[in-house]
Amino acid sequence: MAAVSSQVREMVLAHIRDEPLRPGDRLPPERAFALAWDVSRASVRAAIAQLTDDGVLTVRQGAGTFVAPPKVERNLWDLRSLAESAREAGRELRTEVIDMRVVPADERTADLLDLAAGADVLSLRRLRIIDDVPAAVETSMLGLSRFESLDAVDFGARGLYETLADDYDTVVTSGHQRLGIDAIGPEIAEHLDLAETSRIFHVTGTASDESGRPIERFESWLRPDSIRFISDLQNIEEAV
């Protein structure tokens, strides 16, 4: 069955190329493919599952199977914003502010941002929407002693790193992050329109300026059907 489904996978790809179908276009139902190619519906279903895992197709419950738009690629070594990555992929990104408030820094945040415990920090949580699909929830925490009045900015209209560069002459040039795949939880699931049982990308870390001074503590939840992580590789021993 695996060999047949691989062949059917190539036939589906050829169908997409030859029609041609564009992102958002609907594929014929499994039954039509099975009849046209004289294969089992199980083989068609397996091929579609493979292509869905590859990010080529997307299945909408009750609506059918569609050609997926290209994923936004995030290089693990790249400090560009999600907005820049989306523009590079030809996608439209907009932002909704879920919550923005001034809170006292807890011990962990104070340690990571080199602040006194209890110092005022801006806690900013944003929903990032790519082509009308909720793709990521991002939380940022920044010390207000350095970025006075940052809590007055409309981050639905302006980017965080853009604001830091333009208004505070501060550019993010380095950082540290940890990437995992974790259970989503009810709050994030609701924002991203996913089942609570879903597992998605979970990124945590810090960003620093050119002097190495920490600027931001961040945490992001990203849908794997919208965003793909890549990395540039090198031989560390040869580079030393």
Rank of each mutant, 00 (worst) to 15 (best):
M1E: 07
V4L: 08
Q7G: 13
R9P: 00
E10I: 09
L13S: 01
E19D: 13
L21W: 06
P23M: 10
P28I: 07
P29S: 09
E30G: 04
E30H: 12
A32E: 12
L35M: 07
A36F: 07
W37T: 04
D38G: 04
S40P: 00
A46S: 12
A47S: 11
Q50K: 15
L51G: 02
V56P: 02
L57I: 02
T58Q: 12
V59W: 15
R60V: 12
G62I: 03
G62A: 09
G64W: 06
T65Q: 09
P69S: 12
K71S: 03
L76G: 00
D78N: 09
L79V: 06
R87A: 10
R87I: 01
E92V: 15
E92T: 14
V97L: 10
R101W: 06
D106F: 12
A110D: 09
A116K: 06
R125M: 08
A135C: 06
S140M: 07
L144H: 03
F147W: 09
L150S: 00
L150A: 02
A152E: 13
D154Y: 15
F155H: 06
F155N: 01
G156H: 08
A157S: 13
R158I: 00
Y161F: 15
D166P: 01
D166V: 02
D166L: 15
V171M: 11
V171Q: 15
G175I: 03
L179N: 05
I181P: 00
D182Q: 11
A183L: 10
P186S: 10
H191K: 06
L192M: 08
D193Q: 06
E196N: 10
S198F: 05
S198D: 15
F201Q: 02
A207E: 13
S211V: 00
G212A: 09
R213E: 11
R217F: 08
F218K: 07
S220H: 09
P224M: 14
P224N: 10
D225W: 13
R228K: 12
L233H: 05
Q234N: 05
Q234V: 04
E238R: 14
V240M: 13
